[in-house]
Design a protein around this nucleic acid. Structure first.
Lengths: 229, 229
DNA sequence: CCAAAAGTGTTCGCGGTACACCCATGC
DNA sequence: GCATGGGTGTACCGCGAACACTTTTGG
């Protein structure tokens, strides 16, 4: 059923750049387009915003429908409104980025389908529309945010070793960090709780596992504490 | 002339939170609504995005048309898409914030009109729609950004005293700063150039005026230098 | 000469950085 | 017993923070 307006309106979509972390890389979830234009090209999940849903909800719905991804950290990134973004018509897109735990079996299972894939950031296929700049901006935002907000934990399993955490920062920031200094600093924040578990199935000394104490962080943040890494 | 689409589309607007700095306060530019709903209430300038203009251009056009403001620093803030933002229909708005030099006579003249006013942030009138949260987010963003990017200068005249600059940081950050430490730090960045001018028309010792060396900053930024205040 | 703000150095302590070896475990 | 990564301490330096008086100028 058709809808008529006095003035022409741009179409409104959402697009989600989903990041996942594996041992060696930061990866991005892409799906293969089934329709023209750019048929068969890879693109971040996304689609039209319905008139009766908020932007956040539209983003989560598209993630669920197109990639089976649920329960991720999601944050608005930027709204792209260039005139020629899409060759068909004027489309404004609200871009989001999401952080998924690749360790989560549900995520693995959901994205283990034809036409859904994880790609390393430095080995992306050619992307449709202006999606390459959207992904680049998302990466930049993540790099900035990870230094003053506890978002990195969204990419790790609930219990993780300090080495894993250090790898995370090294991969996202693109720098090497000193092991002793990193541990001193991160432990001095007093936001990690030592668990009595250790790494499983490694063929060397097993690392102790920690968890992030979000309550403590929230309490401190409310008091004006500012994280900085 | 009417436009028809297969699916209902939200309307798309832009809203601009314009900041200006005077001796004692950070101020926001508001205009008085002439139409229902919220007739006569104060609101940031904004309006519908035309189908043939980008978001940035729409924002600048509305600033010009509604408040006569041109040549300001402008940056996208956030896109607000709650369902009940506007009582009439579904409207998604891309919010911007702008930094204007109140010292600029053109800005003063343009905004010296009925229905346009500058309001101190802690003395805002009741705002329409969700505009209060938009303004609050803009203030938060400015507070964050001023610490690692040279945006403060957009609020000052081209030549300014170190005391003016310090006041700027104090007002935006909401803290008092030590004069000696501030000067030491800001001068050590080596981004300010001493001019041979001094303050005019003050009835005490006149302060030396400086200007911000944007070229030097751009050069350093390109080399990975990161500002921090 | 008085009021008002400009301008100027030093000390101290903390946090960031550089740096290398022994230990625990699985095979 | 060997390979692999886990785990740990110290010394130095630079930067941020605290802190008060003299100088200049206009009226």
């Amino acid at each position: 059923m058709a809808h008529t307006y006095e003035y022409a309106r741009p179409a409104l979509t959402v697009d989600c750049v989903v990041f996942g972390l594996d041992e060696n890389d930061l990866k991005v979830l892409l799906i293969q387009r089934r329709l023209q234009p750019f048929q068969h090209a890879w693109a971040p999940p996304g689609g039209f915003v319905r008139v009766d849903e908020t932007l956040d909800i539209a983003a989560r719905r598209e993630l669920q429908e197109e990639a089976g991804v649920t329960d991720v950290y999601l944050e608005q990134l930027y709204t792209f409104g260039e005139l020629d973004r899409d060759p068909r018509e004027r489309i404004v897109t609200v871009a989001y980025y999401a952080l998924a735990k690749l360790s989560d079996h549900r995520i693995r299972a959901a994205t283990d389908a034809m036409g859904v894939g994880w790609f390393a950031l430095d080995d992306l296929p050619k992307l449709a529309f202006d999606h390459a700049s959207i992904v680049a901006l998302a990466q930049e935002r993540l790099r900035g945010k990870v230094r003053y907000a506890p978002v990195g934990f969204e990419l790790l399993p609930p219990r993780f070793s300090l080495t894993q955490l250090q790898r995370l920062y090294e991969i996202i920031l693109g720098t090497e960090l000193d092991k002793r200094n990193f541990r001193k600093k991160i432990l001095s924040l007093d936001l990690l709780v030592e668990t009595d578990e250790v790494e499983q199935g490694v063929r060397h000394r097993a690392a102790r596992l920690y968890r992030f104490d979000r309550r403590k962080y929230d309490r401190l943040a409310k008091q004006g504490f500012e994280l900085s890494i």
